[in-house]
């Protein structure tokens, strides 16, 4: 009797049809791009490269609220120009070879009311590539999703510091994102859209996702690449 009742009740539990439809489409595309799932030392990450290409055609963010946090310069990432690579393979349109100057990063943060309207040096990837990029790169860095805000630990770059390759940190070794200060971003409800800041800070808006639950170690060259991406996209 319990068995029948329980089985019957499970009929009430089903994924949203729109979610499955959307997911099926994403999986179809993901399947067609297996390179998105390959992370190897020394190999440019096609995942990110794809996101970068999308970034170059990015739309402006609607509104971003920066809460009392100054954004660092891109050059603060500790990578020399020689170490940086062009993630888009050298011929991607819209990606300037030169990094922006430090003065370009005065974003007006830290206004008295703590909510300065900001035309951000932020780039936005778009579409399914961005979604997949979000899943496989940005979501795992310890961001906290609260409503329309994504909270990214300011020193999140440290996650990249020691990793040799992309690997999932075992559940028992995972750590909480570091303590505040955080950078607060106002998302725009576009699922999976990653926001790249010129200091390498990343965020992704996942309306469906309450809490990212994985942290990944990434190779330092990827971080350098992301700095490059963010800096160039700013131009």
């Amino acid at each position: 009797m319990f068995k029948e009742l329980y089985k019957e009740d499970n009929g009430l539990i089903a994924p949203d049809a729109a979610f499955i439809e959307e997911l099926t489409e994403k999986m179809r595309i993901a399947r067609a791009k297996p390179s998105f799932f390959t992370y190897k030392r020394g190999v440019p990450t096609p995942l990110i490269a794809a996101a970068v290409l999308m970034i170059t055609g990015a739309l402006a963010l609607n509104a971003i609220i920066l809460s009392g946090v100054s954004v660092k310069e891109a050059s603060s990432g500790g990578y020399s120009d020689g170490e940086r690579s062009n993630a888009a393979g050298g011929d991607s349109p819209g990606l300037d070879e030169e990094s922006p100057s430090p003065g370009d990063y005065d974003v007006g943060a830290g206004s008295e009311d703590g909510a300065a309207a900001w035309s951000p040096p932020v780039s936005k990837a778009d579409g399914l590539d961005a979604y997949i990029a979000g899943i496989y790169a940005f979501r795992y860095f310890g961001a906290d999703y609260t409503g329309n805000y994504v909270v990214v630990p300011e020193n999140f770059a440290e996650y990249f510091a020691n990793g040799a390759e992309w690997e999932e940190i075992p559940a028992d070794e995972r750590e909480m994102p570091p303590a505040p200060p955080y950078i607060l971003l106002h998302g725009d409800d576009e699922s999976g859209v990653p926001y790249l800041f010129e200091d390498g800070t990343l965020a992704v808006c996942f309306p469906r996702t309450e809490t990212p639950y994985r942290l990944f170690r990434g190779e330092p060259s990827l971080y350098a690449e992301l700095l490059d991406i963010a800096g160039n996209a700013h131009d």
């Binding site: 499970n10 539990i13 089903a14 994924p15 949203d16 979610f19 997911l23 994403k26 999986m27 993901a30 399947r31 799932f37 899943i135 469906r208 996702t209 309450e210 639950y213």
Partner: peptide, 26 residues
């Protein structure tokens, strides 16, 4: 999805898990 839901008790996590499982499958 049902396996995920019965363990996590909410749709958000169940959807995330469903997504991850099928990505892993691919």
């Amino acid at each position: 999805y049902r396996i995920a839901f019965v363990r996590t008790g909410n749709s958000h996590d169940a959807e995330d898990i469903t997504q991850d499982v099928f990505l892993s499958y691919i």
